[in-house]
Design a protein around this nucleic acid. Structure first.
Lengths: 194, 194
DNA sequence: AATAAATGTTAATCTAGTTTAACATCATTT
DNA sequence: AAATGATGTTAAACTAGATTAACATTTATT
């Protein structure tokens, strides 16, 4: 599989020597999933963190009433993992399912711990990645309680214009935390407004 | 100031040699703030990350209508910083204000970058801390869209029993994203229920 | 091309939480 | 002790978004 996107991504955060690159590449797993396959299921222990080379996934959980709630979508050059389960190696709260045929690069928990020892710079890489992920998550909390559903939808459209086109509308409603009917209403309002 | 709580905290994540401890302690700032003083204001660049030795802070932002929204409370052995502003050194989205007289240990941006070079293990420390913070934030997003206000309040009470007693009720309402009137209603319902 | 399955729309009714406003209690200052 | 400001309560009227249910459109399968 083509590993260039991963190396290019890493280079945005840290510099790797040729040897370090080789070590990293020797420890990763290439993996392909078909549309609708699960990468992780709620209750399983998440054994890998997953970098997407091609495709699209949704991370979601199913509540007691059987309702699906989407936490995030991931596409090329993003990560798709239940980090809580991964770092503590305890059962996952979330499912991750492919919305398209998807190619991943996986780091297993044990191999990654080994990698941190061989290439300590990777601690810095993942520190920085996680910092950014934390900030993004905190911003989402803020949006949740300061924006109306309409404003949140417009923010989503602006922030992830490509994702909107790849994903059915009812899943976007789920991601926004509103019903598909209400999203439909919002969209028709927006059309009338202009 | 007593720096033991910081060292004890760090030891939960990584081992430091005596020399490394000395280096860390040489690069930190002890700082005291009085009740109601601001550690950071919206629009300023957040120059330090702050570890609380004693006291209590709220992080919040003020929306266009002048309404305050509390993102988090921090007490002893926690961090209190606008991480987004800190890591990018751009203007802060949030204010941090002391709810009690507060003692902090501060790491400035430049000193911390230097510390990462002298004691690379600290990358690992902050990677782990940030991972946990990210997971906690993601869980809050989940709670936001799966729990009713009453359930969120009960979760808050359970998770942070000590904070509830140190902080006025209207601030807890703000943290939960509901009005103080509605929290008051919830509490009287809970009293009747039992 | 016909059928079935998945996705999207509309509208009526309902509800959790907001808004407003008046009042009650507690703590601090003079 | 009185007065002021900060915090908390109650209740009525209101609204954003949920629920239900019927229907419309698009996509995939035979």
């Amino acid at each position: 599989m083509n590993q260039q996107p991963l190396l290019a991504y890493i280079k945005k955060y840290i510099d790797l020597t040729a040897e370090e690159e080789t070590i990293v590449l020797s420890k990763i797993i290439d993996r392909r999933y078909l549309k609708n396959q699960y990468i992780i299921q709620q209750g399983d222990i998440c054994k890998t963190i997953n970098f997407i080379i091609a495709g699209c996934t949704k991370m979601f959980y199913v509540d007691e009433e059987g309702q699906e709630h989407i936490i995030m979508f991931s596409v090329e050059d993003w990560w798709s993992s239940d980090l809580g389960s991964f770092i503590t190696q305890t059962p996952a709260d979330f499912n991750i399912q492919c919305l398209e045929n998807t190619q991943l690069i996986q780091f297993t928990f044990d191999k990654l711990e080994g990698l941190y020892k061989e290439v300590p710079k990777l601690e810095r890489l993942f520190r920085k990645i996680t910092e950014r992920a934390f900030v993004a998550s905190q911003k989402r909390v803020v949006r949740n309680f300061s924006l109306s559903a309409k404003e949140q939808y417009l923010t989503f459209k602006n922030t992830y214009p490509k994702i909107e086109q790849r994903v059915p509308q009812y899943m976007i409603a789920s991601y926004l935390g509103i019903t598909k009917e209400f999203l439909s209403k919002i969209k028709s309002q927006l059309i009338q407004d202009q």
